[in-house]
Design a protein around this nucleic acid. Structure first.
Lengths: 218, 218
DNA sequence: CAAGCGCCGTACTGTACGGTACGGTACGGC
DNA sequence: GCCGTACCGTACCGTACAGTACGGCGCTTG
């Protein structure tokens, strides 16, 4: 497999995926595009056709089908950039607004076609193969969010705005308030997904509820 | 496909799945068993071997592979019985205890091997095939829970214990507080699932948080 | 007991697809 | 101008597997 092994990616914040050549990225984008309207069921031949490359090149670059899928997940992950939360000047109102913004962009990503397709793929592969797909998606989704948000929660706690014992627990509750049943419904094919306006509403409600649960004083 | 079409299953609470003969149930249990340690990747021949029946019989009974999978999901769904919540004598303490019990049994089901396997299967099929698997799982999971819980919430509202405008919204928040990231992590192959004790803790916390958000007075 | 039926086991077919091999071409280095 | 490298296109191979066909057997029914 020609792809660099990328051990210890868990800790690095500067993700891999930049290591792909422009031509390789074209191929991976072709895979993404195929995945959007075929799901998991596309052949290597279809990829080669769509990307105008030979199957042999696919195997040279990515080793096998699993390698290609893994590379695609990494490539997509490297494209998603979560908003960085500024850390200065925290009061309760700005904290709530920041949390709402964060929840909004997160829900937007989560309900996107690409995210749904990749998560479906990873779920399907989590059981059968010993491929790192599920792990990769988890690392770049659920855990990436956690790494980004937890410092903010702790800063807010130091500022006396909120109170909790376990940062992880607090974050998981925020996760639940934001995502609720949206992701599982999307993954199971329910196509009544929230639009932009509703996402905004849900994000603000989640932020407000979180502060109700964890906020200090008033 | 020999399986009864089961239109309008959404509304009925007495689910289908009782229509399978004992021998057919043996076959479906064999499928479940195969699914536990093979995931989606088992062949019809493997099912026939495991169930000691002929492939021809499988096709006679279930039409095709998809029919077999659908029947399996329905059969499993018909086996799961959610606790029925008693409706009399509600005060805040019993309401909270009831909610916690409910959350506990729900989390227990959700983290079970069978549930994870079936949900993975349904997710994998939601995109590609136009099979009703995703819909069936959603109906017997997320929506079945809602049908069971919403009357309780409304009764508690009438009793003046909690307050909300939209029952669906309140339920979805409860959903989020209970499930949080447990299900998506499980589906993506994270095997650090909560044990019985932790599930009990999480259930009680969820019930308590829900009452903090929606409870009236003290 | 004969006829019919439902089911088991197994052999067979067609095909889709992962993976490989190879000839042909473009290009950069020498 | 020659060689090596990288890539495209296509043909090819092996296999796994969905779906079918069929012979045999035991059970039920008349």
């Amino acid at each position: 497999m020609a792809v660099a092994a990328a051990a210890g990616q868990r800790e690095r914040e500067h993700v891999q995926g930049e290591e792909f050549s422009p031509r390789q990225r074209e191929v991976l984008d072709a895979v993404l595009s195929l995945m959007l309207d075929e799901g998991e069921s596309f052949s290597m031949a279809a990829v080669a056709a769509k990307a105008s490359c030979s199957k042999e090149t696919l195997y040279n670059w990515f080793g096998d089908r699993d390698g290609l899928l893994t590379a695609t997940v990494q490539w997509q992950a490297s494209k998603v950039r979560l908003p960085v939360l500024a850390r200065e000047g925290l009061d309760r109102a700005t904290l709530q607004a920041r949390l709402a913004d964060f929840a909004e962009s997160w829900l937007t990503v989560l309900t996107g076609e690409v995210s749904i397709a990749l998560n479906s793929l990873a779920v399907a592969h989590a059981k059968s193969a010993r491929s790192p797909l599920g792990k990769t998606v988890l690392d770049n989704g659920r855990f990436a969010i956690g790494r980004r948000l937890k410092p903010v929660l702790e800063m807010a706690r130091e500022a006396g705005l909120i109170s909790f014992d376990d940062t992880e627990e607090a974050f998981r509750t925020f996760f639940g308030l934001v995502v609720r049943d949206v992701q599982i419904r999307a993954l199971l094919g329910d196509r009544t997904l929230p639009g932009a306006a509703q996402i905004r509403d849900e994000a603000e409600r989640a932020a407000q509820q979180f502060l109700t649960l964890y906020g200090v004083g008033e």
